[in-house]
Amino acid sequence: MAEDRRSQRPARDGARPDSRGGPSARRGAKPESRGGKPESRGGKPDARGGKPDSRGGPRRDGGRSGPDRRQREDWKRPREEQVPRTTDQAEYDGPPLPEEVTGQELDRAVINQLKGMPEKLAARVARHLAAAGMLIDEDPETAYRHTLAARARASRIAIVREAVGEAAYAAGHYAEALSELRAAKRMNGATAYLPMMADCHRALGHPEQSLKLAKSPSVANFAPEAKAEMTLVEAGARRDMGQLDAALRTLELAPLASKSRSSWVVRLRYAYADTLEAAGRESDALAWFHRTNAIDSDQLTDAADRAELLEKRMA
């Protein structure tokens, strides 16, 4: 089942539901507050619970100490005395940011969504999102950790939650991906996430939930590429449920004979050939593996090898 799901999963390259510049963030990590005591000079705590400074006035930081502040203080200590980072602190810090990543690599539409934040905070979030976008294909787990760092600073921004969902999906954290994509959808009402959400349900062993999403009214208005992604997931869910005939009917309604050589056509044809073989229709499967290979100039699939194996078996 896992092999089948990988072969029919929405593509992570050009087939992502959103193409605005890579992943996007999470829980706002509010710094702790510590109530201070009045000093002997008679200073009083301010309304925020801050400790007076040496002049009797309130502390300028309001008594708050966020993860960055705690880390700076920890760095002053000898290495052997430094306290290990907690899980929340490590998530907030995120992986090291490459010096060459500035955040300006993001699409303008993404940068615009961060403009309501303080400048330095927005810049840090943008850098984590840009780093995630650069790494999502070659190192999805690190990309995912970058998006968690962005989410810790900007959890109420849809593009950030979208990025966490996409990176979690790429890294195989399907429950987290589903949760984050749902959050993004609640924030911006976008339906482009539906194919990825449906595939998350498949990965979590809930193919019936995938079918429900596949029947969403908005799917009818999808662009051909996005519609193909949902078809692949729907057919895969039918196979997960042992419904090979239904899976074939689902794929036969797709534009298998399209003259386009786009990756989504390649993947539709491959899924159809694979399902034909699973259904015992080897001659038909062989023909469709050849038709897949004929347009698969980028060798996205192993259609040629599959055709060769079938020919040997049928000889």
Rank of each mutant, 00 (worst) to 15 (best):
R55Y: 12
I159C: 09
K212Y: 02
N188C: 01
L213K: 09
A90M: 05
K212I: 14
D53P: 07
A254I: 04
R239W: 04
K115I: 00
S40A: 15
S260P: 10
V266G: 08
A170F: 05
R238W: 15
A170G: 03
D302E: 14
I157S: 01
E91H: 05
E308K: 12
A235R: 09
P95C: 10
A90T: 10
L256Q: 05
R12Y: 03
A150H: 06
R20W: 12
A152R: 09
K259S: 14
M187H: 01
M196H: 11
R281Y: 13
T102K: 06
P96C: 03
L181C: 09
E80L: 11
D88N: 10
M241R: 13
M230S: 04
A11G: 15
I159F: 01
E81T: 06
R12K: 12
R69M: 01
D53K: 10
A257K: 15
V160L: 03
P78I: 08
T275C: 11
E138P: 00
P84Y: 07
A226K: 12
I159W: 00
E105I: 07
G133Y: 04
K51A: 14
L276P: 01
E166C: 00
P10F: 04
G66W: 06
Q8I: 10
A184K: 06
T301P: 09
A190V: 04
L300S: 07
R34H: 12
V110A: 10
A170V: 06
A303N: 03
P195M: 04
R34W: 02
G66H: 09
E138H: 10
L251I: 07
S262R: 13
D53C: 08
A109T: 14
T86Q: 06
E277H: 13
R59M: 03
